[in-house]
Structure formats: structure tokens, C-alpha cells
Nucleic acid binder design. Structure first.
Lengths: 191, 191
DNA sequence: GTCTATAATTTGATAGAC
DNA sequence: GTCTATCAAATTATAGAC
């Protein structure tokens, strides 16, 4: 039977949850071990038992976010759904961040900060964007019952992701979630 | 003749320059009085002579950025240029941030951080977005020789700004400036 | 796995001399 | 307008007991 270091890993999860919330509100530089510890209900020294340093915590946080995001949007090759339905699902993931989480997309935030991030954190942010572009290119390959041109699809993927990330920022900055909806509506009509 | 507190205001300008660069790289929370002072070549106590606290420095920085940006993009009612030309100029301003400054749009960064910003800084960021949306709506009112529908124009303004701010993030995160160009090309064909 | 205690550094900010 | 000196608090991080 497999050995396991801990039963539930609940503290590590809780740390990542709090760190993610902080980063999605104020960015990587606004994440603090003390405040994480306070929120989780432990001491900051205990956080270092789970993550060697802030860079590794940041990288784990970004990696977990990316993995969860990719799982949410599903398989871009799923033959059971159309390109339009896949795009709708992608838009829904951003909408969820805005309206349910009421936070930025973590990697959108990290992307904006990219030049100031420790190497491992920056790499995880980069990975998120590359995964998203690939996913969108695959999902948008066939829309309207037709197979599109590769360069067009690449451009559309970039536009979709740019518009949604930007719409998150604008909606949150203006405090008007309908701004996101109006962008999303146009994005979904793009394909 | 008008009294004036100082001749050139050069230190104040230098402080704002450095603060802006720091904020556009790492966000508001990564701006530090000590590091500003080091870069300018003064002591951190001297920075407090020009700005009472970090919030006021941040607000002044955002205000100056907005004013400069609006001046760069010009008069949206200028009868000498078409809506298409105005949009091209708007896109150019974002392109300049990416390729010349090699930094984020300051207010795009502050917009992402909005929930974690001191009140005055957040208000300046909000002002930037409202000014931009208004500018775009005015500039895009007449394109292709026709006057568009108000709701369409509002939506287009939001999409243009969202896409460009998002494209800045994606291009910087992936390290590929052509990603911005591909988004910009589609945005300019939108009108 | 969590704690106390602590180190070394950085942070925003103030008082007061020049 | 800039400086020295200083402060209280916060930061990342470590050592070692339990």
C-alpha cells in the first residue's frame, strides 16, 4: 500500500486557498506569510513546513490554479460539444471568477506582474497562458460546422483570451459586471 | 506675477517617474519609498516632503498617468480625423507601453489590484477607465462614414479597451509582442 | 506538524537639524 | 528641500523544542 505523508493535507490546501485569495486581490507582492497564517489559524513558521519559501508557495499556487482552470474548461477535443459550446464554457470560467469569486483571474494578475516575479512563479504564469492559447486554438478549430484557417484561429484565440482578461479588469475597476457581459457577448459572436 | 513653490519641480517629477516604473512592473504594493529614493538619488525622508504618504503618491502617479494618456490620444471629437484613425491612435498608445516602455499600462495594473488599493488610488484608477470608455465611445460614434447605434458603440468601446489591456498582459507574459499585434489587428477591423 | 523565539531586512512614517 | 536619526511594524526566513 502507498505511503503518504499526511492524511488530508488540509492545512496545505488551506494555505493555498488563502494565498490565492490574497494574490487575486492584491497581487503576488501583497501575499504575506504572517497574514496567511493568521487566516488559516496557525503560525507563520508552520507555513514554512509546507512551502520552503515564498517563491515555491507562489509557484504551487499558480500551478494549482492552472490545473483547476484547465479541468473546469474540460477537453477541447470533446466531440460531444461544438466549438461554440466550448467557447461558452470558457467564457463561463472567467465569468465565475468575476461574479462568484469576485476576484481577478490569478494568472491574469501574475501576468501583469510578470517582470517582477521570481522565476518559478513567472514560469507557472507563462504556462497558464500557453495552455489557454493551445486550448482555445483546439476548441475553435471547428466552428459554424466549418474548419477554420490556422492563422485565423490563432488570432481568435488570442483575442478571446485578451478580451476576457481585460474585461475582468475593467468590470472590477468600474464596479460594473455588465461591462464583462457586454464584452463576453461580442466575444461569443466572434467565432 | 504668480508665486511658485519651486523652479523646476524636477525632484517631484523624478519621484513620480520612478514610482510609475515600479508600479507598472510590480504593482502598487511593490512600490517602496526607500527604493524610489535610492533610484532618484535622495533619502526616503525627502520623498515625504513631496508626498504626505504612499496613498497620495499613488494617487498623484495615477492621475499624472491618466492625464498624459488622454493627452497622447488627443481629442476624440477632432473633425480632422476619422473614427478609424482615432482608433489607430488609441491602439498605438497601448503598443507604445508594450514596445517602447516595455511595461504594463499603469491603470491596467491598478485596475487588477483595485480591491486592495487605498481609496484615493482606487478612485484615480476608476477615473482612468471611465475616461477611456467615454473617449472611445466618442471616437467610435462615426466609423465607416456612418453613425452607429449607441448600444453597439458602447459595447465596442468596452471590447476595444478590454482586448488591448488583456493583450498587453498576454504579450508580456508569453514574451511575444506579436500576440499584441494580432489582437490589435482584429480590434482595428472591428469598427 | 505546530509551536516559541528570534534573526535580518524592509516597510511607511516622523522629528528636527541644516 | 534635503539630510540624519529614529521608530514601530511587517517582511521572509531559520533553529530547535514539543
Amino acid at each position: 500500500m502507498p505511503k503518504r505523508a499526511q492524511k488530508h493535507d488540509s492545512t496545505k490546501h488551506a494555505i493555498l486557498d488563502v494565498a490565492e485569495r490574497m494574490a487575486r486581490e492584491g497581487g503576488y507582492h501583497d501575499v504575506s506569510f504572517r497574514r496567511i497564517a493568521d487566516d488559516v489559524g496557525i503560525k507563520s513558521a508552520s507555513v514554512f513546513h509546507h512551502f520552503a519559501n515564498k517563491e515555491q508557495l507562489g509557484a504551487a499556487m499558480a500551478r494549482r490554479y492552472s490545473d483547476r482552470f484547465m479541468e473546469t474548461i474540460g477537453d477541447p477535443r470533446d466531440p460531444g460539444t461544438t466549438g461554440e459550446e466550448k467557447l461558452a464554457r470558457y467564457i463561463k470560467a472567467f465569468s465565475h471568477a468575476l461574479k462568484v469569486d469576485r476576484q481577478m483571474c490569478l494568472c491574469g494578475m501574475l501576468g501583469a506582474e510578470i517582470d517582477s516575479l521570481p522565476k518559478d512563479v513567472a514560469n507557472e504564469a507563462r504556462r497558464f497562458f500557453n495552455l489557454n492559447i493551445d486550448w482555445l486554438e483546439t476548441a475553435l478549430t471547428r466552428t459554424g460546422g466549418k474548419t477554420g484557417k490556422k492563422t485565423d484561429i490563432h488570432g481568435k484565440a488570442l483575442l478571446v483570451m485578451s478580451a476576457l482578461d481585460g474585461a475582468l479588469i475593467i468590470s472590477r475597476a468600474t464596479g460594473d459586471t455588465s461591462h464583462f457581459d457586454q464584452v463576453a457577448e461580442q466575444v461569443s459572436r466572434l467565432v
